[in-house]
Design a protein around this nucleic acid. Sequence first.
DNA 1: TCGGCATCGTGATTCGTTTCACAAGCGAAC
DNA 2: GTTCGCTTGTGAAACGAATCACGATGCCGA
Lengths: 204, 204
Amino acid sequence: MPKATVERLPLYLQCLQAMGDVESTVSSEELANTAGVNSANVRKDLSYLGSHGVRGVGYNRLELCTQLRRALGLIEKWSVVIVGVGNLGSALAKYRGFDASGFNVVGLYDADPAKLGHPVDGHYVKSMDDLELDIKEHDVSMAILTTPAAAAQSVADLLIEAGIRSILNFAPSLLKVPDEINCRQVDLATELQILSYYQAAGRA
Amino acid sequence: MPKATVERLPLYLQCLQAMGDVESTVSSEELANTAGVNSANVRKDLSYLGSHGVRGVGYNRLELCTQLRRALGLIEKWSVVIVGVGNLGSALAKYRGFDASGFNVVGLYDADPAKLGHPVDGHYVKSMDDLELDIKEHDVSMAILTTPAAAAQSVADLLIEAGIRSILNFAPSLLKVPDEINCRQVDLATELQILSYYQAAGRA
DNA sequence: TCGGCATCGTGATTCGTTTCACAAGCGAAC
DNA sequence: GTTCGCTTGTGAAACGAATCACGATGCCGA
């Protein structure tokens, strides 16, 4: 499945869920409009899931949701740890959107002893020393990294060593990870800078 | 300038800044390695800024930073408002990375009367009613949207009406905006879902 | 039962981006 | 001054993704 397609699947899922239960069937045109995509593109994307549309009618909304969730691996519930309990880390710990899509935050970790034991959204901040064992014990495979940039790489190494297979990195620092590790970079300042570019030149 | 290039410029800037002051000159190869990009790609990207490299030597690091900042419009300091002072909103208000790259958070706004007047990082949360006037008065052109999904579109409309030209939207809801408005969508759950896909199938 | 309409699925095409490959240019050394 | 090694800048080729265009197919009403 093309990378570009994979990155659109969550969007489709979001759109379908936002539609409410009124419509039981959606056309590619309709979905394309709400998702801001070309309808042929939608059809091609969905065709990778296997063809479950009905010509002349469209796609069954609920069935399509299920297909998308299955394709995205959201049938299983993933356990996630958050490392770095600063402003962003604790905000993410409290964020309800993760649970809603099948992710379960099982632990918060920070290197700062002053933060240890503090409660954040029902979890107590734990020491980095507990990280490896917890990960192995609870079979945690995803981590959210919200440490300062300087610490990000060493924490990532630690996580990978402990068996983490996917990392969502909010630290403004590019991680070097082995090929078999999934890593996505979300940089808030970068996003603003891109907006700045287009705005500065009056383009778009 | 190609969209793909624009989205890499902040990365280059970040890499160059992270290199520290030791090296005064960088080759495309070197920058490519730290940025995780092909070196020809780096050269082509940088060539859009005008050709400031020296054959046989490389690029002057500081000069290149300046070029990048200029191209990204980071010479001027942008004023930004944050709308929606929930967990994420207040975390972003406290985030230092924005200031560092030339963005200045000038106001926080929330629809919840209970939050009004509360101090967050030196700012007092203001009412949505103040939004329009503040934006016009201080010539604010960028907004960060961290409201619940349900409110996002109407707030966006309000912002655009008030003269905002760029929106960074963290609400899990796709905004419909006119062509002349820049809008970027950052969805935390989406990012995890993409990771989930690759991990579920053992790909990558 | 049949015809017409709506929509899907998909080959062909276009478009944008990445990568390759190499000539041109610069600096250093002798 | 000439040669040599390194690195840029860029046309050409390769690649991947978006779009177009249309045949295939299923529903519904007459």
